[in-house]
Design a protein around this nucleic acid. Structure first.
Length: 622
RNA sequence: GGCUCCGUAGCUUAAUUGGAUAGAGCACCUGACUACGGAUCAGGAGGUUGCAGGUUCGAAUCCUGCCGGAGUCACCA
């Protein structure tokens, strides 16, 4: 943190230590820091920090109120920063001295990096986004990307070296469907000739394939062959409709011409057929250009990409070694399994009887490769909660294989994003496209900004930049303020709201500070040290500023950015209220004015830092 | 059915990890600058924290059992 000696030791620790000494001196008992429960004093009471006296009742054999009273007296006497106290219902509320807060504020005004922890020498890899290359990104990816990005930012600020990666699912039957449809119906078209983003272009051929396939399937259902299949394979009383719905996969694999062509293409790809490989590369390159554009507009980037086409064969060595070590066992048919029933995870296949890999095999191999590549201490996988079981198993396996990073594995699991109308379903066309959504919020921000007419003095490009920042703040904040594990309802209408508990509300607090600072000009703020009587609202804000580094630490430990979002909102709210109730530039004294300018600057700095952790940029005007 | 997660105001959600009278926003109603930016502020109304027990000074939070919802239990990814 800062150079200010007062900041070297957290005041919470100082008080805790004081309490431990106090209990020893007053009652002769030894307690640990964990036994001292402390939190910020609630707004309706006077004080900065509160010590709960109830747990000491048994030790001291006195009533909590009396203990609090005695402890309060002791702390005021022994701890320099504690100025006074009051006791309510067994809660000891401590007020820190004005001098403490003044020095704290002066300290963070000097400290450009307030909130940034020193490097801890540990490296963590965060995997997120991880798209398939047969269709564009959608709302679900946006939640994933925002979580991954902000978690990376938070870990970096908490002192880790962070490596951001994605694993791109660039192979398999899905992309072959797009390739086939393009070859059959595309007539040599390209994203350029079609005037379309590459990922949408390729996605359209995927959809076209599905459409053609459905037509073929429907025609087939009228055929003699289909009647025979239905007669032989349908269960008692099963309707034709239900049967053919369930039969679709089998049809694709065993009867369909299109299906056969697609599968043939996959085989050719796996065999390294040149023409197939070059078509595959062409299609994927189009997709990546599209993805890059979306990533750019979201303001995210990656350090390294892993491609499944490179990694899908990895992991077999690890299985073999694991077999030798007795981690896995082999069945008579040659398939390899692991028995995890002792940890309630059942038996799981790790290698097919024909010796080919499954998903789990690749993931084992990929984890090992990543460790070889970067030597990371931790790996975080940002993946939706439908894969909870998969990651439990994967982590357990890596642990049993004795991987050095096994203790540092974390699945950042998040809930699906629902729409007010229900689940997103690609089949029903209810998927919210990422690019469309971004365009929509930008449009909304543009309308709002035009109505207010607050930035018309800026150049056209500058106005666009401000509008983009506002729009993305609205969208990102809306998503990231919800705890990851909770399933969330995404209302497109609410997501573009610019008032209330939103990103633009927080930005507005920052913009207000910038406006005040511009008006104040460049003047020395040393008069602040003469400011004597701090207002409760000023102390409240200082308290929040003080808690910021600890909050970042907590967010890093829990891999949960939502707390930072809520903190930024609370801080902005406190500042808005302060701004309304107290004049800054027309404050009663020079000391008050200087102090409040310092305070405003510190608030702006922490808001900017905090929002940066969420991937949200701050405009200077809006 | 087994396992996992979720259930807080009409809606979207907090709660410093077991602490004080469960806190915000949206929507609804009422107010506030000749003021440093009204994308703001203040007030009103809105709650049996799914239900029932238990643990203890104290429970939205921990335990048990129900109710409701979701996910997952493939030689798919």
């Amino acid at each position: 943190m800062g150079k200010n000696p007062l900041l070297l030791m957290n005041i919470v620790d100082v008080i805790q230590e004081g309490v431990i000494k106090g209990i020893k001196a007053l009652y002769g008992a030894d307690i640990t820091a964990e036994q001292v429960t402390m939190n910020s004093t609630r707004k309706e009471f006077e004080g900065d920090y509160t010590v709960v006296a109830f747990p000491f009742a048994r030790i001291a054999r006195k009533k909590p109120d009396q203990i609090a009273e005695e402890l309060g007296g002791f702390l005021v006497e022994e701890v320099e920063e504690v100025e006074k106290y009051n006791v309510i219902n067994g809660f000891l509320n401590l007020s820190l001295s004005n001098g403490f807060w003044r020095e704290f504020l002066a300290g963070i005004c000097e400290d450009e990096a307030y909130g940034q922890q020193p490097a801890n020498g540990k490296k963590v890899m965060v995997e997120f986004s991880s798209p398939n290359t047969n269709k564009p990104l959608h709302l679900g990816h946006i939640r994933n990307i925002l979580l991954g990005w902000s978690t990376s930012q938070i870990l970096k600020t908490a002192g880790y070296e962070v490596v951001k990666v994605q694993i791109v699912n660039d192979r398999g039957i899905a992309i072959c469907k797009s390739m086939l449809a393009w070859r059959k119906y595309g007539e040599g078209a390209s994203p350029e000739s079609a005037g379309e983003k590459g990922d949408h272009f390729v996605g359209d051929y995927y959809v076209l394939f599905e459409k053609k396939f459905r037509e073929e399937y429907n025609d087939w259902q009228q055929s003699e062959e289909a009647r025979k299949v239905f007669g032989q394979q349908s269960e008692n009383g099963q309707s034709e409709e239900a049967f053919f719905k369930a039969f679709k996969n089998t049809y694709f694999n065993e009867y369909s011409l299109l299906g056969a062509e697609a599968k043939d293409m996959l085989l050719k790809w796996e065999a390294g057929d040149k023409a197939t490989a070059s078509l595959w590369k062409q299609m994927n390159d189009w997709v990546y250009q599209g993805f890059d554009e979306t990533y750019r507009s979201l303001g995210v980037e990656f350090d390294k990409l892993y491609f499944e086409s490179d990694t899908y064969l990895l992991g077999k060595d690890a299985i073999r070694k694991g077999l030798e070590k007795g981690v896995f066992y082999q069945k008579d048919d040659g398939s390899v399994w692991i028995d995890l029933s002792d940890v309630n995870l059942d038996h799981k296949l790790v290698l097919r009887s024909d010796g080919t890999s499954v998903y789990m095999t690749q993931d084992i191999g990929t984890a090992q490769k990543r460790f070889q590549d970067f030597g990371v201490d931790k790996m975080v996988y940002v993946v939706a909660d439908e894969q909870n079981y998969h990651f439990q198993v994967l982590f357990e396996i890596l642990k049993r294989l004795g991987e050095p990073y096994a203790e540092g594995l974390y699945h950042l699991s998040y809930g699906m994003v629902d729409l007010p109308t229900g689940k997103m379903k690609s089949r029903e066309g209810t998927v919210v496209d990422a690019d469309d959504l971004i365009a929509e919020v930008v449009e909304e921000a543009r309308k709002n900004t035009a109505e207010r007419d607050t930035i018309s003095g800026l150049s056209q490009e500058e106005q666009e930049e401000v509008i983009r920042k506002i729009a993305l703040a609205a969208l990102k904040f809306f998503i990231i303020k919800v705890q990851p594990r909770k399933r969330m309802v995404f209302d497109p209408k609410e997501s573009v709201d610019l008032q209330g508990q939103t990103g633009p509300y927080v930005q507005n607090a920052y913009v207000r500070v910038q406006s005040v600072l511009r008006k104040a000009g460049d003047q020395p703020l040393s008069a602040a040290s003469a400011y004597q009587q701090l207002e409760p609202q000023e102390k409240e804000i200082l308290n929040m500023l003080y808690s910021f580094p600890g909050l970042v630490q907590l967010a890093a430990e829990e891999y949960d950015p939502s707390g930072i979002a809520n903190f930024c909102y609370d801080l902005a709210k406190a500042y808005h209220r302060f701004y309304h109730d107290h004049s800054i530039l027309n404050a009663g004294t020079e000391a008050a004015k200087a102090f409040r300018l310092q305070l405003s600057r510190a608030v702006a700095h922490v808001l900017k830092q905090g929002m940066n952790l969420l991937g949200i940029e701050m405009p200077d005007r809006m």
